[in-house]
Amino acid sequence: MSSIGTGYDLSASTYSPDGRIFQIEYANKAVENAGTVIGIRTKDGVILAAQKLLDSKLLVSGTAKRILTADMHIGMASAGLRADGKHLQTRAREECKNYRDNYMSPIPLKHLSDRLGSYLNAYTLYSSVRPFGISTVISSCDKNGPQLYAIEPSGLYWGYQATAIGKGKQLAQTELEKLNFDELSMRQAVFEAARIIHLVHDPTKDKGFELEISWIGKDSQYKHVHVPAQLYDEANELGKTQAESGRMQE
């Protein structure tokens, strides 16, 4: 059934007669309009990559990062309303801090996903709030090994080998499915991610963008950091040429 004009789509606390909650679906629309984010879990670490669309050429390059850090060992990247993403980072930071205060050890990513999932879910239960207009990919690598999760506006979360959210989700996912995860190293994943982000970007239609890549694993001493400048430049350049030649062939 159509949602618009029925009156069943004006609040997160209202079901439509066929059992849907339209406000959550509309929140997903905010996600689908945003720059692509991908996450890849390899055997020795996890990488995140984001396509930061540039709304203005007056922006200072390298600022307004989309890949954020919630604890030494936790990275997160959201697609959707940027300010909602910042809000969730603050919440994630609190969760990590509380866990460390209580247990004197770093929070397992599965636990954090569950906490954040519940938090997002709470914003889908009442008419006095709106759902978060973001999906978030979170990464970690600790004694439990490399882990990757994604959380949706509904509060639903899943663990992934690799995932993509945002505008270029479909194409990126197709590309990710071609990867051989038994062989892929974290370093190789950086290059794959750069290539895919460049591939989903259509220079004739989309505005300009900045590529962002972070990693966590042995190569980063198990801390979540943006990849070193040299590796970044290499991956960015190669990704760009690969994507261009890919488009030429089509």
Binding site: S11, Y26, A27, A30
Partner: peptide
């Protein structure tokens, strides 16, 4: 401000 439009 707690309402998303159908376009998000």
């Amino acid at each position: 401000n707690t309402v998303f439009s159908p376009q998000g």
